[in-house]
């Protein structure tokens, strides 16, 4: 029983992490209609900020990581994505792939292709006993952060003018523009939020693994993408559900899969969405982005 409880908390924590990734991808998608491959590199660069600032107090280093995520995201949008804003979905996707490749190779050239290790604060790597279950403090942090982010995003979307503009833009970007929503500002805000979310994920990943590497953003961004596909494109709620499902699945597979199959966990995790797509070609919540008025 306690073991089950433990596994469920693990599953929830990983699901929360994946939901944060998926949200970061979705925030940009809803406003700009772009799947951003470079989101993984936002995560990676924030993690490297933590590595570079390792000498500073932990809180300051985390602040630096957050700033890095936001600045990089806004900068990349301005330099690389704005010129292709009106291009089709595929062109935007490939552009973001190019940005991802560039950022990855810059870090590879500047630091090293190999992983670098980072010390994590003792408080985070310890566990807390809770009714017979030993819960790593990192999982509390992840779950807490997910809850805070969800609440914050909800507040932003439903209680502020910016949120109203974002929701309007998600419904119909052109119409929102005609009604006076400032596209440049709105998209910049979306990227800033996305960058902050990426930074949070980057910090959590470093806390979890204790290391950084140039390729560390690849799996997360794919997880984010797949979660978005499962959840139905452009739906915040769908992205959260998709992320939770993927994380829980991955975590539970890690626990219950026979030992010799554990290395194939990723293969199974990424096959499941395909099976879902067989039955629900437009995701669980059924957003159909190809819907065209004829």
């Amino acid at each position: 029983m306690t073991e089950l409880g433990q596994n469920l908390i693990d599953a929830l924590a990983l699901g929360g992490l994946y939901a944060l990734i998926a949200l970061g991808v979705t925030v940009v998608f809803t406003v700009m209609g772009m799947m951003n491959f470079a989101h993984g590199e936002f995560i990676m660069l924030s993690a490297y900020a933590l590595y570079v600032l390792a000498g500073l107090p932990f809180a300051a280093a985390v602040g630096g990581a957050l700033l890095t995520g936001v600045v990089i995201a806004v900068f990349v949008e301005r330099v690389a994505f704005r010129p292709v804003r009106n291009a089709d979905l595929s062109a935007q996707l490939v552009t973001s792939l190019a940005v991802a490749a560039i950022l990855q190779s810059v870090v590879t050239a500047a630091v090293d292709v190999r992983a670098q290790s980072i010390e994590t604060p003792a408080l985070i790597s310890e566990s807390t006993q809770l009714g017979g279950i030993s819960v790593p403090n990192l999982e509390f942090l992840t779950l807490g952060l997910t809850a805070v982010v969800l609440g914050g995003l909800g507040w932003l979307l439903y209680r502020t003018r910016t949120g109203l503009a974002m929701r309007a833009a998600a419904e119909n970007f052109e119409m929102a523009r005609l009604l006076g929503v400032r596209a440049d500002r709105l998209i910049a805000i979306a990227f800033a939020i996305s960058g902050a979310l990426a930074a949070a994920v980057g910090v959590l990943l470093v806390m979890q693994t204790g290391q950084v590497s140039p390729g560390m953003g690849l799996t997360p961004v794919l997880i984010g993408f797949v979660a978005v596909v499962i959840g139905g494109f452009g739906r915040m709620f769908g992205a959260v559900i998709g992320g939770l499902l993927l994380g829980a699945l991955s975590s539970l597979l890690g626990t219950y899969l026979p030992d010799d199959l554990v290395p194939f966990r990723d293969a199974i995790v990424f096959t499941v969405p395909v099976v879902i797509l067989i039955f629900r070609p437009h995701g669980l919540l059924g957003g159909d982005i190809n819907k065209a008025r004829v």
Binding site: L222, F225, F270, L277, N290
Partner: peptide, 25 residues
């Protein structure tokens, strides 16, 4: 067979997932 059923934007993502599956295996 399953991947081509999905939309123009889901295909890049699900094919990418296929790549990861192959690499993983």
């Amino acid at each position: 067979l399953p991947l081509m059923r999905t939309s123009t934007l889901a295909i890049p993502i699900s094919t990418f997932a296929f790549l990861v599956v192959v690499f993983n295996v």
